[in-house]
Design a protein around this nucleic acid. Structure first.
Lengths: 325, 325
DNA sequence: TCAAAAGTGTTATCCTTACACCCATGT
DNA sequence: ACATGGGTGTAAGGATAACACTTTTGA
């Protein structure tokens, strides 16, 4: 039986200037000393002797690798498919099967002392089709749809493609990030798919460095899949747990809060209805103080009533869409 | 570095005569040939060479171990805490750290050819406090609250206990199954806690065979924790995905459907409001045929419109509570 | 005819959606 | 004064929660 290695991966998300960003690293090869062309997530092996739980292991190596201290953390999913680039690491004599446990981490501060090859990368780089705040992204119809529909001749596939990418009038569902990525992967439109096929055939294990613009930048290993899982989960969770407040500073204006939600969900919200539903939940409390730095009328500052979480009432936020026009 | 072994565990849930049941096994010791006093979940090691994915591995060993074929399957969580009885398995020379990947499986048929030590066990055995269909279970106040409140002197703990077990007027939240189990574990009211402490101290690794009635039967290893995770997740998912229909036969009456939901959620629902919200979703379609076998007026048979899932509209069911009286 | 189970009507209230308009500040 | 962002009123329609009552069968 092959040896098994557990890898931990962290999707660390923040919002910076109305944009969702994720912490990425560019590992360098131990032999060639070259830095990888592709970005990856912070990841490392789980050391069963050094750490009592996954979460402790994760916190330790993320801090060591990126000089960043994690706050809110939740487990996402455990990936173990052979082929889907669960690469065989070289461990001692033989090859080992790598299982990766993905974690989602949220932080209010996207600026902090980071290591040399650690950067915050806009989510848009990896999933350019996921941001509908300025209307339907034209690259869906221009770049994605043509090759996707060529692949999607069988009616089964066609229905899926239409549904997931909101083709001919189907409604956009912002939560299905993973399904969309998997569809592109299956259709061969994610460069990672070629690479994994290559590896399966025993070919060179090189990471792809060429990729079609508009289809998103590929990542190392199965990291883009983990990232898609994270974004989808986060978008869903916004609606039933007060997780946005892990992404905001302690004091914020309602517009800042709305822009944070919009950056994550990738949709534009109706201002007043957003506020009304916020009011109903009582999640937030006005501080009576104003925030002047915006140019227009100063806005009132609010804080998250964190004490509610302990008392059991911890719902999410409604996402009342602003229909375009 | 210790070796790592991946274990897969399956929580297979069905509803039988208005009762949630779970597939359990009583493994026997290879040396003594004795059957374990405690029930466990179907579990087995993941063989990285034999199986391309966890799910395939899971299906294979569950069928082999219980002669049962899994249908609907989803990954739950990966447990890896040392101490929380992630037991060290004896593998070759040294001791290995066991990581268990828990899965939830649903099936409409609780009766099927099973292996000799494989039985369907009512959920109530393990979590007697989770069934509120006949009102607030008296054992919460009589059996659980007294020792729990003795432990919960510090205000932090007290607030948690009140919240989770709906003490002095707090509302019951049926989804927080795991948190309730963890609270009992921390309070030393789950026999598994003593056992794990014992093991940490290097004591005998025996499973507890004595336990207080009313606090639920303990299970092998960390299986009760996995089971609690599964039940909580399933209760939550009922509300936003049409998973109940994985637990019903292809044709059913609305009362049968309601009783199935109630068995899982552990609460009683308001008949008409339940039906009205079902109607709105269009999830279900009347067949015009009647089902006579109940004694009273025959009920119309319905089927789940499974085609909706493919077309994207796949919401869950509302759970309009019936207030007691 | 009565028990058992199925199935329906109706209302008050609350929430959501969709309108459009006023307010306070800096330049 | 006007641009920029902050903040509010209100009404229609739909959803929910809470009432209690009628219908159809088997025994």
């Amino acid at each position: 039986m092959s040896e098994i290695v557990i890898g931990l991966s962290a999707v660390v998300v923040a919002v910076r200037k109305s944009e969702a960003v994720v912490l990425t690293v560019r590992p360098h090869d131990a032999l060639t000393h070259e830095t990888s062309a592709l970005a990856g997530l912070p990841f490392g092996p789980f050391d069963p002797d050094g750490h009592r739980t996954f979460e402790l292991g994760l916190r330790a190596f993320v801090t060591q690798q990126t000089r960043f201290e994690l706050g809110y953390v939740e487990q996402l999913y455990t990936f173990g498919d052979k082929g889907r680039d669960a690469p065989r690491a070289d461990v001692g004599a033989g090859a080992a099967r790598v299982i990766s446990v993905g974690y989602l981490a949220l932080t209010p501060q996207a600026v902090q002392a980071l290591g040399p090859d650690t950067v915050w990368t806009p989510m848009r780089k990896f999933f350019p089709w996921e941001d509908w705040r300025r209307g339907r992204p034209s690259l869906i119809d221009e770049v994605i749809a043509p090759p996707l529909l060529r692949w999607a001749r069988p009616p089964e596939r066609l229905a899926r493609a239409r549904l997931l990418f909101a083709l001919d009038g189907a409604p956009w569902n912002e939560e299905r990030v993973l399904e969309r990525y998997e569809l592109l992967y299956e259709a061969g439109l994610a460069p990672e798919a070629d690479r994994d096929r290559e590896r399966e055939r025993g070919g060179r294990p090189a990471e792809p460095s060429q990729y079609a613009p508009g289809l998103g930048e590929p990542m190392l290993s199965d990291h883009r899949r983990i990232l898609a899982t994270a974004l989808g989960r986060l978008r869903g969770k916004l609606k039933y747990r007060p997780v946005v407040f892990e992404l905001t500073p302690p004091e914020f204006t309602l517009s800042q809060l709305q822009r944070t939600v919009e950056a994550i969900a990738g949709v534009t919200l109706h201002k007043q209805n957003f506020r009304r539903s916020l009011e109903r939940t009582d999640l937030v409390e006005g501080l009576g103080r104003l925030h002047a730095e915006t140019g227009g009328r100063p806005a009132e500052l609010f804080r998250f009533r964190r004490e509610l979480v302990r008392s059991g009432r911890a719902p999410g936020l409604a996402l009342p869409l602003l229909r375009e026009g």
